[in-house]
Amino acid sequence: MAARPGPERAELVEMLAELTNRPASEVPERLGSMELAWLVHLVEQRYDTRLDLTDDQLAGIRTVDDAREVFRAWLTASADG
Rank of each mutant, 00 (worst) to 15 (best):
M1F: 06
M1L: 09
A2F: 07
A3W: 07
P5T: 03
P5A: 04
G6Y: 12
P7T: 03
P7C: 05
P7K: 03
R9P: 04
R9A: 11
R9S: 09
R9D: 04
A10E: 13
A10D: 13
E11D: 09
M15N: 08
L16W: 12
L16P: 11
A17V: 09
A17N: 11
E18L: 01
L19K: 11
T20S: 10
N21W: 12
A24C: 05
A24T: 14
A24M: 06
S25G: 08
E26V: 01
V27N: 04
P28I: 12
E29S: 14
E29Y: 11
L31R: 07
S33Y: 04
L36V: 13
L36R: 07
L36Q: 02
A37W: 01
W38P: 10
L39W: 00
V40E: 02
E44V: 14
E44F: 07
R46Q: 14
R46S: 13
Y47M: 08
T49D: 03
R50M: 02
L53R: 03
L53P: 00
L53F: 03
T54I: 14
D55G: 06
D55F: 12
D56A: 08
Q57T: 11
Q57I: 12
Q57E: 15
L58K: 02
L58C: 01
A59L: 09
A59C: 01
G60E: 05
I61R: 00
I61G: 00
R62I: 01
V64D: 03
D65G: 00
D66C: 04
D66M: 04
F71N: 01
A73T: 13
W74T: 04
L75F: 04
T76P: 00
A77D: 15
A77S: 14
A79H: 07
A79V: 05
D80W: 05
G81C: 08
G81S: 10
